[in-house]
């Protein structure tokens, strides 16, 4: 979505009624983020909106980017926010080989996730409560960190997802699933996340000061 560099647009203040609606939207979409919403968007602080190309709005507090949204699609976290609250977003993990493709803006394909280095939710309903949290026991052999923070619940098509990477601590992309995680496992091929936001893309490099 942000393969090209973006030149900063002007910021505008978000009305307090709209700010409240956005807070609700965020906590509904990302329930695990709810306990921290006052830290992310303090009630007293002014939330700003910046219009960027292709009808995307970026929400920020001061220079700190928080969320972005294409028209009225799902509101997605900026990667810097994912890095601040890594366990609060549903996630999948790609294998090491897929990293450089994702970082060049390629569509994330199923084989990069279904391989040994990749991770998808286990699908175990008993893990429902762990959704989004780190699964300490599941770190594979030869890995020291970057076990990921995927959970048990299968994710549906259209759900926002953070993309972690084998051997890496931080997430490298954010996007919307174009295929449910159950289907990814069954099919093992096809695009999984298209048009996401990734490390080093135009949104990442956008100057927000």
């Amino acid at each position: 979505m942000f393969k090209k560099d973006i030149s900063p647009g002007s910021k505008s203040k978000v009305k307090s009624s709209v700010q409240r609606a956005i807070r609700t939207q965020i906590t509904t979409t990302y329930p695990l983020l709810a306990p921290y919403i006052d830290e992310i968007i303090p009630k007293k602080e002014q939330l700003d909106a910046m219009k960027i190309p292709d009808r995307v709005t970026l929400y920020l507090i001061g220079p700190t980017p928080l969320f972005f949204q294409h028209m009225t699609d799902a509101i997605l976290p900026h990667l810097k926010l994912v890095h601040r609250f890594p366990t609060c977003f549903p996630s999948i993990r790609i294998d090491r080989g897929a990293i450089r493709f994702v970082l060049s803006g390629a569509t994330l394909m199923a084989p990069g996730i279904t391989s040994t280095g990749g991770r998808l939710p286990s699908g175990d309903k008993d893990e429902e409560g762990l959704y989004g949290e780190s699964q300490k026991g599941s770190v594979g052999e030869g890995e020291r960190e970057g076990g990921g923070w995927y959970g048990g619940r299968e994710l549906e098509e259209g759900e926002p997802v953070a993309v972690c990477a084998e051997g890496k601590e931080e997430a490298c992309a954010v996007g919307v699933l174009s295929m449910g995680t159950k289907e990814v496992k069954e099919k093992g091929k096809g695009p999984v996340v298209e048009e996401g936001h990734y490390l080093g893309d135009g949104l990442w490099k956008l100057s927000t000061e």
Partner: peptide, 10 residues
């Protein structure tokens, strides 16, 4: 509710 900032610093 947590008073201390809970976010990680990367």
């Amino acid at each position: 509710s947590p008073a201390e900032p809970q976010s990680r610093h990367v």
